[in-house]
Design a protein around this nucleic acid. Sequence first.
DNA 1: CTTCTTGTTACTGA
DNA 2: ATCAGTAACAAGAA
Length: 310
Amino acid sequence: MPELPEVEVVRLFLNSHLIGKTISNLEIISPKSFSGDPKKIINQKIIKTSRIGKQLSLHLANNFILLFHLKMTGQIIYSPPSSRGTPNLREGVSTLGHPTPLHSFSEGWPNKSTRLVFTFSNKSQLFFNDQRKFGWVKLLTPDELFDYQKNLGLDVLSSKFTSKYFYNQIENTSRPIKTVLLDQNKFAGIGNIYANDALFLAKINPSTSSNKINLKKSELLVHFLKKIMMDSIKAGGSTAKDNKYIHPDGSAGTHQFSFQVYQRNNEPCLVCQTPIKRIKIGGRGTFYCPKCQKYNRSVKRDARRTEGLI
DNA sequence: CTTCTTGTTACTGA
DNA sequence: ATCAGTAACAAGAA
């Protein structure tokens, strides 16, 4: 569930709390959650953070990289030295300054979904929690990291991610645009939340064949993709009904209150009040407004424009 | 009990 | 090659 904005919010937090800290211990509670030789990170300083799509990297002084993927239910929790093992939750306001809903995480950390515990030399800790164990942390060399990420598409917020790049990626495939948006080897960072909502904002039916979308429509979709990602980062990401995403300090994001269609099945469209529909595309739940995102609407209009009728 | 959900990879068959 | 479909992974909710 954590997608580009959620991972970026976590990265920003870790960037301001972990840079310069030295790892003194790693406790591997769930072996499947970690790959690599844990001895190689001991006494190493964290010097940099980076992110491509949904993948977060912590760069160590010895050039090794800790690569994180939260998959569906991964959490990264930071516990400062003064409050070891307990969340520093404050109801009402997150550390990013957003209002945040009440949370039921009163048990503190580690908890039963804690898979890895990093301890730093000043006794602060980083917990990698993952209820469903799909997420992982890998210790990689720069070459291994490059190999691992070489097939990823451009990050949506990269300056190289232009509408021309986007159009080149979609013009030769007839797969539904919704499916292609989720293809990390074309575009890194888009998940189900932002794919559904960006298509709504651009008024594109999620079933539309990608090669039916013209350059003009691509520009619109790229505009909304970038905008929704940036808006969500500002809102601290999306803490949705059934996702486990929270900030490293235990507080919640607020972008879920701005969902357009995602998880709004049968609720009124925010533009026209038509009930939002839920269908399956490529096996994934897909939400859209049947009136605002009429199938072929853009195609027909684009065809008429091409013929000079508009 | 079954079915569904999520992101990603791996596999199968067209 | 390319793609659609599906199982697998894990755990919990309905």
